[in-house]
Amino acid sequence: MRSFIPLLLAPLVLAHPKIPTPGPDGKYTLSAPGIEAKFIAYSAAITNLVVSDRNGVKRDIILGYDNASFYPVDPNHPDYGAVPGRYANRIKDHTYVVDGDRFFTEANDGNGTLHSGLNGWSRRTWNVSEVTSKSITFTIRDEGNSSQGLPGLVLGKVTHTIEANSWSTKLYAVSKTHDTPILLTTHPYWNLDAFQNPATDLVLNHTLSLPFGKRLVGIDGNTQSTGALPAIPAGDINDFWSKPKQLGANQGNANWVGNCGTNSGCSGYNNQWVVDRDPLDVTASKPVASLSSDFSGIKWDLYSDQAGVVVYSCYWMGGANELKASQKGPATNGFVKSNGCVAVEPQDLIDGINHPEWGRNQIYTPKGKPFEASIQYKFSTF
Score class of each variant (00 low, 15 high):
D193E: 09
D193T: 13
D193P: 11
F195E: 03
Q196V: 01
Q196S: 14
N197F: 02
N197R: 13
N197H: 11
A199E: 13
A199T: 10
T200C: 09
T200Q: 10
D201E: 02
L202F: 00
L202Q: 11
V203I: 14
V203Y: 00
L204P: 04
L204K: 09
S209L: 01
S209V: 00
L210W: 03
P211V: 02
P211D: 00
F212W: 08
F212T: 05
F212E: 06
G213H: 03
G213I: 00
K214F: 00
R215I: 00
V217P: 05
G218T: 07
I219Q: 12
I219A: 02
I219P: 04
D220Y: 02
G221S: 07
N222F: 06
N222I: 01
N222E: 07
S225P: 03
S225L: 02
T226K: 13
A228F: 01
P230H: 01
A231D: 11
I232P: 06
I232E: 02
G235D: 00
D236F: 03
N238R: 07
D239H: 01
D239F: 02
F240L: 03
K243A: 10
P244E: 02
Q246R: 15
Q246A: 12
Q246E: 09
G248E: 06
A249C: 04
A249L: 03
N250V: 06
G252S: 14
N255K: 13
V257T: 14
N259H: 05
C260R: 12
C260L: 05
G261C: 08
G261M: 06
T262H: 06
N263R: 12
N263A: 11
N263Q: 10
S264D: 07
S264K: 10
C266D: 05
C266H: 12
C266I: 08
G268H: 07
Q272F: 06
Q272G: 01
W273F: 02
V275F: 07
L280R: 15
S285V: 04
K286Q: 14
K286S: 09
P287H: 13
A289D: 06
S290T: 14
S292Y: 10
S293V: 04
D294E: 15
D294A: 13
D294N: 15
D294G: 12
S296A: 06
S296T: 03
G297F: 06
I298L: 08
I298H: 10
I298G: 09
L302F: 15
Y303A: 09
D305S: 15
D305L: 14
Q306L: 12
Q306G: 04
Q306E: 12
A307P: 15
A307I: 11
G308Y: 14
V309T: 12
V310Y: 14
V310L: 15
V311Q: 12
S313G: 13
Y315V: 07
Y315W: 15
W316C: 12
M317A: 13
G318W: 14
G319K: 11
N321P: 06
E322H: 14
E322T: 09
E322K: 15
L323S: 05
